[in-house]
Design a protein around this nucleic acid. Structure first.
Length: 836
DNA sequence: AGCACGCCGACT
DNA sequence: GTCGGCGTGCTC
């Protein structure tokens, strides 16, 4: 896709492009637009830059930044516009390795090449120009209404205004005709601000040039300069260097004191690039186990020896919860760094895994760059550049860290490789785990996919001999996995005089068994984790008389009642509606709150255990950047007795004092219309069960469910992943689903219901007639979530064992298929992780 | 994405 | 005869 066949081949062979740089007069540029093609520009005075170099080019009436992907394709002699500037004097922003990787992604996922490249780089490197207008004169002629409105808007806001802002303000399409006319009339001037080239932020830093100055020398050196001595020791305490601003501000030293230190030759003041890293303030915890168990040592040995293999196969590290996978990662990375190579650690959601990140930071300190979604553009750029220059050699982060610009890559570790968050939900819709496999294969690096509950894809890749399995079957603590007690929500509690109706039992939220277990923990000053994978207070509000349920007006799901906010909230589009006092359909005042959410569980728990310190963790309580750390910090310090939350509490937490895990209702999500529903339920239960029994005190798990005989629940309670995998693989044979074959999910959406249905059918018809060979189609049908964000959604599935045939189909649907009708969108999702 | 062009119905 | 809304196709 990028620059045609020749570029791909040239890259693979590491050969120069087929045209000698000096001869080339045109260049092929990928621009960050949702289009399949690249654009040809004249080079003018410039030599052909290296592939991956950023250039500034005119595009339409704007300037944009694009990437050189090859010499220009011979055109038909049409006039080409000229490259305005070649950026990246210190070398291309996109290395040959990353360019090749992006080419693969763009091809495989049928994604626009420019959007793929943009996804691989920090935003600061892809900014476009902005246009501003300012009033400089009075209009002579009569103004049209829209011109009048434009001038009023500028006057009201004062000064220079961005054209894009003004367009949004006025609504209704482009305002360029008006701007152009007013500029010609001399009423406005137009200023185009060129994209700012990302310059590293610098700050003045004072650094001491001597270390451990003896007391006697100190006395003589500073005998008549007590302030200089104070400043010297202030900087010493700060670790040998300090920001000049801090010294003058917090330290309240004057500039002349600093000059005095410079004069004496004990300190230098210099501009230093500034690295701002919010993870710095998070306390670094030393790892609990510094000595490997024999099992860990064997796994580490096998991984390290694979570093010498020129073409190692990817490893699947199947280690039960608490078996010390992180320790293996840390030791492996240490070995990689020792050999002068570099590494990437991918985690599903970095803000949820502060403990894991802490372990890496404790071991690798300044050699590691933490890529976090909370980073500002500047911080992200700083981190990226530190990796590009080799100043830091390890990147840790979510999905996009797979693009970390490291040279001589030794390893990519994908922690919790089964997690769906590795799939990007917008173009390019790549799966970071699969991209990691591709990147390591090309780089001759090793790939380690770790999980206690591997994806069935990886599991079957082991069976097929594509991956190598390594196992950790013992917990580091020496303890066994915690025993799991299943509470059948359909059966009345033991000791009840007569059988209670099922509702009475499920209506209790906490079974007597779970209540007693929590009580015991409170008595023993131990901690409890309660999981309910559904937030809010109750899932929906149902009329007791006509049965009507209040739906979201934009999506086809029911609104969730949030008690604290006193609103009904759509969990997809965040639509808010007031809580009704009577049914909108029949007017009945008898409204029932059905379905259970974390908020309601919190209320019940707080009322039942009045002395307990309870914290709730879900997206409603953790909107702030660092709220996760704050809540988890309190759990770690023993300030919380009961931690209640959604799936975000199931991952990566390691607190030895947690001796009880209660699952309020294991069935949430089990009955979703998605072929991975069972797999996800098993994973969630297995993961949350693993949060306990990590210390000498042991642990216990209580799972409440209405389907205790379902294999996902049964095998999770037995901690038997291989048995689950075998059963689930059999379940997916007929009808066939991944990993037995590959899937393409095609979603056609439109604000109009009939248009969505008609266009889905028409897309499927073209697909069948042009790509019928070796592909089995299913559908079209309304998507499981039929309406989302005010759009009607229809979808169909294409299933095939042929990677190349599905690729051709994906590319056809994404770029060549024409739709008819208003605002129709076609999304092509290759290897989808969810069909909703 | 963002824009222009051209078609069509509605209003002067 | 003119305006504006919307569908379509191009941007190098």
């Amino acid at each position: 896709l990028i620059g045609g066949e020749t570029v791909g081949k040239a890259l693979k062979g590491g050969l120069p492009p087929p045209v000698m740089p000096s001869e080339a007069t045109t260049v092929e540029i990928a621009l960050p637009l949702p289009v399949a093609n690249t654009f040809t520009y004249a080079l003018g005075e410039f030599d052909l830059p290296a592939l991956g170099t950023r250039v500034r080019v005119p595009f339409g009436r704007k300037e944009r930044i694009g990437w050189v992907v090859g010499p220009g394709r011979p055109g038909e002699g049409r006039r080409l516009r000229k490259v305005l500037a070649v950026l990246d004097p210190q070398g291309p922003a996109v290395t040959a390795e990353i360019l090749e990787l992006c080419t693969w992604i763009a091809n495989y996922y049928a994604a626009p090449p420019g959007l793929t490249l943009r996804a691989a780089l920090p935003a600061l490197l892809t900014d476009v120009s902005t246009d501003r207008v300012r009033i400089v004169g009075r209009p002579r002629d009569e103004l049209r209404p829209r011109e009048r409105a434009l001038l009023d808007a500028i006057e009201r806001r004062g000064g220079a205004q961005r054209v894009a802002t003004l367009r949004n303000l006025l609504g209704k399409g482009s305002i360029w005709p008006e701007v152009d006319r007013l500029v010609r009339e001399g009423v406005l001037v137009l200023e185009t601000e060129v994209p700012k080239d990302a310059r590293p932020a610098t700050r003045r830093v004072v650094r001491l040039t001597v270390e451990g100055l003896p007391l006697g020398e100190r006395d003589t050196l500073f005998s008549r300069a007590p302030r200089q001595r104070d400043a010297f020791e202030w900087i010493e305490t700060a670790g040998g260097s300090a920001a000049l601003a801090d010294l003058l501000g917090e330290g309240e030293f004057s500039r002349s004191v600093v000059s005095g230190l410079e004069q004496k030759g004990v300190a230098v003041v210099a501009d230093e690039e500034q690295f701002r890293d919010p993870f710095r303030s998070i306390p670094v915890e030393a790892g609990p186990a510094l000595v490997s168990t024999p099992q860990q040592a064997e796994v580490i040995r096998r991984l390290v020896s694979a570093l010498d293999d020129p073409a190692p196969r990817p490893f699947l590290l199947h280690g039960i919860t608490g078996s010390g996978k992180t320790h293996v990662y840390v030791e492996l990375l240490a070995a990689v760094l020792e050999r002068g190579r570099t590494g990437i650690v991918l985690v599903p959601e970095i803000s949820l895994t502060p403990q894991t990140v802490g372990r890496f930071r404790a071991r690798f300190g300044d050699r590691i760059a933490v890529l976090h979604s909370g980073l500002s553009d500047g911080e992200r750029y700083d981190a990226w550049r530190s990796l590009r220059t080799g100043e830091r050699q390890v990147a840790i982060g979510a999905r996009s860290a797979v693009f970390a610009p490291l040279t001589d890559l030794g390893v990519i570790i994908v922690d919790e490789e089964h997690e769906g968050t590795y799939k990007q939900s917008e173009a390019p819709r790549y799966h970071a785990r699969d991209v990691a496999v591709v990147r390591t294969r090309a780089a001759g690096a090793i790939c380690v996919l770790g999980s206690a509950t591997p994806s069935l894809e990886s599991w079957s890749n082991v069976a097929a001999g594509k991956f190598v399995k390594l196992e950790l079957t013992d917990r580091v603590s020496g303890g066994a996995l915690p025993p799991v007690q299943v509470i059948d929500l359909r059966v009345p509690p033991p000791g009840a005089g007569r059988p209670a109706p099922p509702a009475a039992r499920s209506g209790r939220i906490l079974s007597p068994e779970l209540e007693r277990a929590i009580e015991t923990r409170l008595d023993r000053r131990e901690q409890t984790i309660l999981l309910l994978n559904r937030r809010g207070y109750s899932s929906f509000v149902q009329c007791g008389s006509c049965g009507d349920v209040a739906p979201c007006p934009h999506c086809s799901i029911s609104l969730t009642f949030h008690r604290r906010l006193k609103v009904l909230l759509c969990h997809h589009c965040r639509h808010r509606a007031p809580v009704p006092d009577r049914c909108v359909q029949c007017g009945s005042a008898e409204l029932n709150y059905r379905g259970l959410g974390t908020e309601q569980v919190e209320r019940v728990v707080v009322e039942r255990f009045t002395d307990a310190r309870v914290a709730r963790m879900d997206v409603d309580t953790t909107s702030g950047r660092w709220t996760h750390h704050e809540i988890l910090g309190r759990v770690g310090r023993g300030e919380i007795d009961i931690l209640l939350g959604t799936q975000m509490i199931a991952k990566g937490l390691d607190f030895p004092n947690v001796t009880l895990v209660g699952v309020i209702n294991a069935d949430v999500g089990l009955h979703l219309p998605d072929f991975r529903a069972s797999e996800r339920t098993f994973q969630l239960l297995a993961q949350v069960a693993g949060r306990t029994g990590r210390g000498p005190k042991g642990g216990e798990v209580i799972v409440q469910t209405a389907v205790p005989t379902h294999y996902a629940i049964e095998m999770a309670t037995r901690h038997d992943y291989p048995a689950f995998a075998a059963r689930e693989l059999a379940e997916r044979k007929e009808p066939a689903y991944p990993p037995h074959l590959r899937l393409l999910n095609v979603i056609v959406s439109s604000p109009d219901e009939e248009t969505a249905a008609r266009e889905a059918e028409s897309a499927l018809r073209s697909a069948r007639s042009l790509h019928g060979q070796g592909i089995v189609y299913l559908g079209p049908a309304p998507a499981p979530i039929e309406r989302l964000h005010g759009r009607w959604r229809w979808h169909f599935l294409a299933r095939s064992r042929s990677v190349s045939r599905l690729g051709a189909l994906a590319s056809f649907l994404a770029f060549d298929h024409r739709t008819v009708g208003s605002d129709v969108r076609v999304v092509v999702d290759r290897d989808p992780v969810a069909l909703l």
